[in-house]
Amino acid sequence: MSKRILITGAAGFLGSHLCDRFIKEGYQVVAMDNLITGDIKNIEHLFPLKEFEYYHHDVSKFIHVPGNLDYILHFASPASPIDYLKIPIQTLKVGSLGTHNCLGLAKDKKARILVASTSEVYGDPAVHPQTEEYWGNVNPVGPRGVYDEAKRFQEAITMAYHTYHGVETRIVRIFNTYGPRMRLNDGRALPAFIGQALRGEDLTVFGDGSQTRSFCYVDDLIEGIYRLLLSDYAMPVNIGNPHEISLKDFAEEILKLTGASVKITYKPLPVDDPKQRQPDITKAKNILGWEPKTGRAEGLKKTYEYFKNLSSEEWYKLPKEFTKQK
């Protein structure tokens, strides 16, 4: 009998790719999303499949899934600055209440759960590259604190369920990832640059552009998550591409890729924006036998083709408006 897996945040960028991967691997996939930042179009191709079912639900509220569950992937959360700055309370609730509900479900179903943490737990790091043993440099009351601290709490409660209740848990710390199904308007560097190039606008770099990021192609990330879920390792693991690049150089790569005849403009750096971001993936290599395979040039070409083939209406689409959260 095939294994059954619940994926929260299933209509999001990463969640939808995880749905595809686990369907391909022969799993029964239960998808859950309240579509506050996800898009049903990301998973609508799966609706005709008998191996796929979808629940429109907010995991911050009590979760009920009938039947057995072997695994849970908890990927429900706003993940871009535009989103979590507009819906800070919802961001905190999905990281705390939502994670608590998912862990309770895992305990009840005797399922293994993997929670999606982030490199943002390291804050603006004083250690470079970032190893899993680094505790971070986070401002809990800054504008980014709602996301950073939600994820740090998420890791803490996950480990508590592991040690106190004996729940099988896994924690992945995800570094910057890109690929098809990203939103052009989500505020992160790669879709922002490509969106501006497609619209014929100047590319906006914040600060002097010397801050660095490390970009991992989505297929590589999904492979790392798959291996971590099926591993026997319960402590956090960095999954990302250690090839670091400055945002100024990255913007120039995007200009070359798109052929856009625009220039780079500079604006002040946002509060608490990390100056460096590079994963140490020694653990992923040693424990999972994993490292990224897709070079940035190849990944960017695939991503640009995806964005270029969207309708021009999508190029100009504004970010979602959110109602105030209680």
Rank of each mutant, 00 (worst) to 15 (best):
K3N: 12
I5W: 04
T8C: 03
C19I: 05
I23Q: 12
E25L: 15
Q28G: 10
V29C: 07
V30D: 06
N34M: 01
T37Y: 04
G38D: 00
G38C: 00
I40W: 00
K41M: 06
I43L: 04
E44P: 00
P48R: 07
K50I: 05
H57T: 07
K61C: 05
G67A: 09
L73A: 01
H74D: 08
F75D: 02
Y84D: 04
P88I: 05
P88V: 04
T91R: 04
T91F: 02
L92S: 05
K93E: 12
G95K: 05
H100K: 10
C102F: 05
D108P: 00
A111I: 10
A111D: 11
A111C: 11
I113V: 15
I113G: 12
S117P: 09
T118E: 10
E120D: 13
A126G: 10
A126Q: 14
V127M: 13
V127C: 11
V138E: 06
P140K: 06
V141P: 00
G142R: 09
P143K: 13
R144I: 03
V146N: 15
Y147L: 07
D148C: 13
K151G: 03
K151F: 02
R152V: 06
F153R: 00
E155P: 02
A156C: 01
T158P: 04
T163D: 13
V167T: 15
R170A: 09
Y178H: 12
Y178D: 01
N185Q: 14
N185T: 02
R188W: 05
A189F: 14
A189N: 07
F193K: 08
I194A: 05
L203T: 11
L203H: 11
D208V: 09
G209W: 09
R213I: 14
V218W: 08
L221T: 12
I222Q: 08
Y226V: 01
R227K: 14
L228R: 02
D232L: 00
A234S: 12
V237L: 11
V237F: 07
N238G: 11
I245V: 15
K248G: 07
A251L: 11
E252C: 06
E253F: 08
I254C: 13
A260V: 12
L269M: 15
L269Y: 11
L269W: 11
Q276G: 02
R277F: 02
D280N: 15
K285Q: 15
K293E: 12
A297T: 10
T303F: 06
E305F: 05
Y316H: 15
L318S: 14
K320A: 08
K320R: 14
E321Y: 06
